[in-house]
């Protein structure tokens, strides 16, 4: 790591001031992503602004109307241990349990987890990468087994084909969560809540971040709305090994059944795009229909609609279909399990 200065921020204002004004300063919280990037020289901050000590942003609060507000500095371990999360948002609980390891979850914050950089091995190594300022994405024509199926528009090398690595983001997307972003200089009453899917953007050469945040912007809270009564949730993750790996493909499903009829279905896919990828067409088709093998087949096919395999990641299409099928089985038929 190159030398850098360190400030343990005493207030969010102080941190935001430094971050928005000082070139080379970086927001530092759990450090589980930033330090690995810094060690590899992928990023070289001059100044780390540590907000971990800001206890005001480390909480779990019940929202009026039944949802849950999560302070962005809450660690994944704290969320994992929370009973409300387990009882009311099992998909979120599961997505956290399969994130990293106990040691990582003890340090990693939920805000940092959402804002982490891609795990693309071109990005994190000494390889051509748009995010390094190179002219071409090395993964688009290279070893792209872990890369995107959706959302990258073109595999001509001019678009980043990395995927967002977060598991909780996928579950939160299916739960229709929102994130609250603190903008420097704005009073807290003016902080806006944004649907979580809108937090993410495709990283580009000029803006190599995975989120829409500007320097000094800080995700301060995640709001998970109350889910419909009787809804069922599941989070399934396919990995190269049984633990401690990022998702090849993951699926979060939230279904509300009215008898045998799917009143509502939300399907978010992980590991396939720069953000949690909502299978909106599949969700629409499902809504209001009686669960049948034919409907399941249709949802499964629609979930993969528009997939653009890059070469080495063709396997992700059957994998995602298989996971969606298993997720549907889990949320529509309690007796059968996955």
């Amino acid at each position: 790591m190159k030398p850098f200065a360190y400030t343990a921020a005493t207030s969010l204002d102080q941190a935001q001031e430094i971050l928005s004004e000082e070139w080379g300063s970086r927001l530092y919280a759990g450090g589980t992503d930033l330090l690995t990037l810094t060690k590899r020289g992928t990023v070289s901050p001059d100044h780390l602004v540590d907000i971990k000590g800001l206890a005001d942003f480390r909480y779990l609060r019940h929202l009026t109307g039944g949802g849950l507000a999560i302070g962005a500095l809450t660690t994944l371990a704290e969320l994992e241990a929370n009973r409300t999360v387990h009882r009311r948002f099992p998909a979120l609980a599961r997505s956290i349990a399969v994130t990293g390891t106990p040691q990582l979850r003890n340090r990693a914050t939920v805000g940092g987890n959402l804002c982490q950089q891609p795990r693309c091995w071109y990005y994190r190594g000494d390889f051509p990468c748009l995010l390094h300022g190179d002219e071409v994405c090395g993964a688009a024509k290279g070893e792209n087994a872990y890369h995107a199926l959706f959302g990258y528009e073109s595999a001509d090398g001019n678009r980043c084909v990395a995927v967002h690595p977060s598991d909780p983001a996928v579950a939160l997307s299916a739960l229709e969560a929102e994130v609250v972003v603190a903008v420097p200089g704005e009073a807290p009453v003016n902080w806006e809540a944004t649907p979580i899917d809108d937090l993410f953007q495709q990283p580009t050469k000029d803006f190599p971040g995975t989120t829409i945040l500007n320097p000094g912007d800080v995700v301060v809270e995640i709001r998970v709305p109350e889910q419909p009564k009787g809804s069922r949730q599941v989070y399934l993750k396919a990995m190269d090994r049984a633990a401690w790996a990022f998702a090849l493909v993951s699926v979060a499903a939230v279904a509300t059944l009215d008898g045998n009829r799917l009143a509502d279905l939300r399907l978010a896919l992980g590991g396939v795009a720069y953000k949690p990828w909502r299978a909106r067409h599949a969700e629409e088709i499902a809504r209001g229909h009686v669960v049948s093998p034919e409907l399941v087949d249709e949802i499964v096919e629609l979930a993969a609609e528009g997939a653009m395999p890059l070469g080495a990641n063709e396997y992700k299409v059957p994998l995602l279909k298989g996971l969606v099928r298993q997720a549907l089985r889990a949320v529509t038929d309690e007796s059968r399990g996955i």
Binding site: Y6, A8, G31, L35, T36, L48, Q103, N106, R107
Partner: peptide, 18 residues
């Protein structure tokens, strides 16, 4: 892995200054 205030952490991902 060491224990930091009672919690297991990877000490390579903690700065001494923290």
């Amino acid at each position: 892995t060491v224990s930091l205030d009672g919690q297991a952490v990877y000490s390579c991902l903690v700065l001494a200054v923290e």
